[in-house]
Design a binder for these strands. Structure first.
Length: 278
DNA sequence: ACCCAGGAAATTC
DNA sequence: GAATTTCATGGG
């Protein structure tokens, strides 16, 4: 992968194993909106950019060279060799090979940990459309507006200071008290998200699960999408069905150190092939 | 009206 | 302990 900076835009060349739609519409982030030209616009780190294809290249519009190097390159996980990971995973199981071929451009985003924590608390017993709406209201009400008109994800401090009443403008229902408990535990240091990045996996997961409203599945999502712990293997309703039907006799540990990436291929494949489970 | 949605807590058995 | 019910909200 090479990149050049030109006029507020970063042009990325020679990038393989990447698709905007596979990566941004596969249920790992709730903050990217598709544009009319097929690109996507979104906000992370408080900065709003759009990203689109230009022939073989990708353009990140609205990014400085420095922001690309310190933020976006990592956010989109451009430096991990997905070709190699896919090849290794595909050897493990023929159905996993199929799933990877179905959406070969998926990458696991490195989202901000607190955003992943709150987003996946909101995701429980909810549908993606509505999750996106709640997250949008959360940012518009409690985030900071930037020059581009986008809103940052609110800080833990900002949310921790709210009452349930004040938070209820986002209409997240019974999840309001979960969000507040998460924000307050992060502010107090009872839960240290950065420490969870390096802690042994079971300990990191247990620490996240001390938050009211965070069970195994949400904890795994935070570990995978927010802390890039690729051994995490979130088991939602789709994945439980998929494991039963497509991978009987297979346990999550079978997929090894990149189980979370395997999970993303399988999740996306299953969601777009519901007929497999009728 | 009923059912479900990238679950988890509370209750019941 | 394992199985069931409840928890807001909105769309089909």
């Amino acid at each position: 992968m090479k990149y050049i900076f030109e006029n507020n835009t970063v042009r990325i060349q020679g990038l393989s194993d990447f698709s905007l739609r596979d990566t941004l519409c596969c249920g790992q982030s709730f903050r990217w909106r598709e544009l009319e030209d097929g690109g996507f616009s979104g906000t992370a780190f408080g900065k709003t950019v759009s990203i689109k294809c230009d022939g073989e290249d990708y353009l990140i519009i609205g990014s400085t060279k420095e922001d690309f190097e310190t933020l976006w390159k990592g956010y989109f996980d451009f430096e991990l060799d997905y070709g190699k990971i896919k090849a290794d995973l595909s050897l493990l199981h023929p159905t996993l090979s199929e799933a990877a071929k179905f959406a070969p451009g998926i990458r696991i985003l490195r989202q901000e940990p607190f955003e992943a924590l709150i987003s996946f608390i909101i995701s429980q017993n909810n549908n993606i459309k509505r999750i996106e709406g709640i997250v949008e209201r959360l940012c518009e009400n409690f985030g900071e507006k930037n020059e581009a008109g986008g809103y940052s994800f609110p800080t833990a401090e900002k949310l921790a200071a709210l009452s349930e009443e004040e938070l209820s403008v986002i209409r997240a229902g019974f999840r309001h008290r979960y969000i507040l408990d998460a924000a307050r535990k992060v502010v107090s240091g009872d839960v240290d998200l950065e420490r969870c990045r390096t802690l042994p996996f079971p300990e990191a997961k247990a620490e996240l699960m001390t938050i009211v409203g965070v069970g195994e599945k949400v904890a795994d999502c935070v570990l995978l999408y927010g802390l890039h712990r690729t051994e995490a293997f979130p088991l939602d309703v789709w994945m439980k069905r998929a494991m039963k039907v497509l991978f009987p006799e297979v346990a999550p540990e079978f997929f090894g150190e990149y189980a979370g990436i395997a999970q993303q291929y399988i999740f996306h494949y299953s969601r777009l092939h519901p007929e497999l489970f009728e």
